[in-house]
Simulated assay, not measured.
Amino acid sequence: MTTSPVLELSDVSVRRGEKLILGPLNFQITQGERWVILGPNGAGKSTLLQILATKIFPTQGSVSVLGKQMGRVDLFELRTRIGICGAPIAEDIPGDEKVKDVVLTAAYAILGRWNEDYDLWDESRAIALLTTFGVRELGDRLYGSLSEGEKKRTQIARALMADPELLLLDEPAGGLDVGGREDLLRRFANFAADPTAPATILVTHHIEEIPIGTTHALLLKDGQIAVSGPVEAVITSEHISAIFNEKISVTQDAGRFFARSYQ
C-alpha cells in the first residue's frame, strides 16, 4: 500500500520584490520520517519553516500539507493538526500564564486561558507531556519565570498537546547549555522512538543538535536544496564543508554527529 506524503512541495519559490530568496524547491516527507534541515544564516531555513507551518504562502508552486493543498483549505483547521515549537509561537505566549495552562490551551489551538472547559483527559495529557520533557514540577510556575531551557521544554510539550500529525521544531536546543541540550535531545530521541510519534522536521544550525532517530536530512544553501536524503548519506564532511564554505570534519558516534573545522 502506497503511503501518502505528509508534506509535499512542488516547484515552490518565494520572492521579495525582484529577489528570489527561496527555491525552486521540490521536497516531500512521509509518515514515520524524522527530518532535519540545516544551513548557514540566510540559507532560507526560516522562510521554508514558515511555509511548512502555513504561516506564509509561496510566490509560486504548490504546497500540500497532510493531504490538503494550501490555498484550497481552511488554514485554521489545518493548523490544529500541526505542532509548532519556535519563535513565532514563543513570542506570543503570555508570561503570566501558568506552565500547565500554556500546554493545556493548545487543545483549543489558542494562547492564554480564558473560560474554556478542559476535561480530565486534557489535564492528564498536559501533565504527561510535561513529565516526558522533564518539567512536570514547574506546572504551577509562571511561564515568564522559566529559564530558556525550561521554556523550550514547555513549548515542545505544547506543540504535542493536540496530538499533531506533523511536528515542526525550530532550533529547540538553541540557547541551552551543554547539559540542558543533551538532556533535551535524549528525551526527544526517546519520544521520537515511539512508532506513533508524528512525522517531524527539526531546523538547526548545528549538527550536534541532531537527535538520535533522525532518518533524513536536507541541506539548504542560498535558498536552494544542496542535497537531501537519508541522514547518514547527507551529513558528511564533504556536504557540510560545501554548504558552510569551511573545511569541516564530520564524525559520527552512537547515532550522533559532531563537527570540527580544520585547515
Rank of each mutant, 00 (worst) to 15 (best):
E8C: 13
E165W: 02
I110R: 14
D122C: 10
F133L: 11
Y143I: 12
I156G: 12
D96N: 14
P172R: 08
K19Q: 11
H205C: 11
E8M: 07
L202C: 00
H239A: 14
S261R: 14
Y143V: 08
Q60K: 12
P5N: 10
E77G: 02
V102F: 01
D117T: 12
D253L: 09
Q155M: 15
F188P: 05
F133Y: 12
V63P: 02
D177P: 06
D163S: 15
I248F: 04
L66F: 10
M70P: 03
N115F: 14
I248A: 07
G139Q: 11
A107Y: 08
G144W: 12
A217F: 08
S228I: 01
G39T: 09
K55H: 09
L185W: 04
L111Y: 00
R16V: 13
Q224C: 10
I207A: 06
V178C: 02
D222Q: 13
A53K: 03
I243F: 08
H239N: 15
I127V: 12
V102H: 03
S261T: 15
I240W: 01
D177F: 02
S13H: 01
L38K: 00
L166S: 06
R158I: 11
G67A: 00
S237A: 00
F188R: 05
A106W: 00
A43S: 15
I243C: 08
T214D: 07
L184F: 13
G39E: 09
R141T: 00
D177C: 05
G17S: 08
G112E: 12
P94R: 10
S241N: 01
A192M: 14
A226T: 02
L185N: 05
D92P: 01
E18Y: 02
T154V: 15
D177H: 11
L220H: 09
S147M: 08
N245W: 00
Q69M: 05
L9T: 04
R16C: 09
G95M: 06
A87I: 10
L167E: 13
Y108D: 11
A226N: 08
E150F: 05
D122W: 06
L169G: 03
G61F: 09
